[in-house]
């Protein structure tokens, strides 16, 4: 039995297979709509995340399975003090697979240590969110046609943004991928990424604090939120926030085939006027997120075509 706790649990080949399955699902959805009939998914969300939960539930429903679960710790037995281990053992008696989100880092790993059914980490605090990374990879593959020979610009909060760290780690496994890291000085990537991945794998990367001069080199622009709570004072936040907003004016610097991605939800870092630009991919990303989760559920349930 396999779990998905962090993106590194999957080999590059397995990620390739998931992408292939997801592509086939997009092309032939009818073929899959009863493939998990009789199977149940539990979404155990110890903290609310409506988007992610709906994506998992839609994925299972589109495979012909059914779903149950809870959407916040208040409505679960943790409110009565039940441990993660006990919750998972109990729920495992009813369902075939569990998608779990938890505010504490490592909770899904702990769950996987005693679970009788596969566990999918649907986000554990600021630590890991592997299905977001799979979504990003499927999006890149579909929109750019490849995962190698790409220059990817990541913009915003690169220090605390887990989706960014995980995407860098995943993309570093493909040939000739270059990184442009755009962030305020205060929110640059942490050393475990800079030294542990970029330097160690001898990758090409640049770090900068402005977008205009580098946008023309990027095949992908991955935007993230700059959060107010990361700053010591309001003045810094306001000054930096506006530097990292993508608007139609900045889009003029991007290549005609650069794709714009964002893990959503956005606050103000992408102007809504950009949405109608053909290069904006963030809503497609949401759609692809459901398909890659379908492929993942099938894989972990060991349901074959």
């Amino acid at each position: 039995m396999r779990h998905l706790i962090e993106i590194g649990d999957l080999s590059v080949e397995e990620i390739g297979e998931l992408i292939e399955t997801a592509n086939d699902m997009i092309a032939n959805p009818d073929y899959y709509n009863e493939i998990c009939k009789g199977k149940k998914l539990a979404t155990l969300f110890f903290e609310p995340s409506t988007r992610t939960r709906l994506s998992f539930e839609a994925a299972m429903l589109d495979l012909g399975g059914s779903v149950l679960g809870f959407s916040s710790a208040e409505s679960s037995s943790t409110a009565k003090g039940e441990s993660v281990t006990d919750t998972v053992r109990t729920v495992g008696c009813y369902v075939d697979i569990i998608a779990m989100r938890h505010p504490k880092e490592g909770a899904p790993l702990l769950a996987s240590m005693s679970s009788e059914v596969p566990i999918i980490n649907a986000g554990d605090g600021g630590h890991s969110h592997p299905t977001q990374t799979l979504t990003d990879l499927l999006t890149i593959k579909r929109e750019k046609g490849r995962l190698d020979n790409l220059t990817i610009a990541l913009c915003g909060d690169l220090m605390f943004g887990r989706t960014v760290h995980s995407l860098i780690a995943a993309m570093s496994c493909y040939e000739n991928v270059k990184f442009i890291l755009i962030s305020p000085e205060e929110l640059r990537i942490p050393d475990y990424i800079r030294v542990g991945i970029l330097q160690k794998k001898k990758l090409e990367w640049v770090e900068t604090d402005e977008m205009e001069s580098v946008l023309g080199k990027a095949d992908i622009l991955y935007m993230t939120r700059v959060q107010r709570e990361r700053f010591f004072n309001e003045a810094d936040y306001l000054r930096l926030r506006d530097t990292f907003i993508l608007d139609t004016k900045k889009m003029e610097y991007a290549k005609p085939d650069t794709i714009i991605m964002h893990p959503l939800p956005r606050v103000n870092e992408i102007s809504p006027k950009v949405d109608s630009d053909e290069r904006a991919c963030y809503f497609k990303q949401v759609k692809y997120g459901k398909f890659i989760r379908m492929a993942l559920i099938m894989k972990l349930l060991e349901v074959s075509k």
Partner: peptide
């Protein structure tokens, strides 16, 4: 020592 770690809240871990 990470207060956000599951070891800070789960009993008997």
């Amino acid at each position: 020592k990470n207060p956000r770690c599951i070891t800070s809240s789960e009993r008997e871990i």
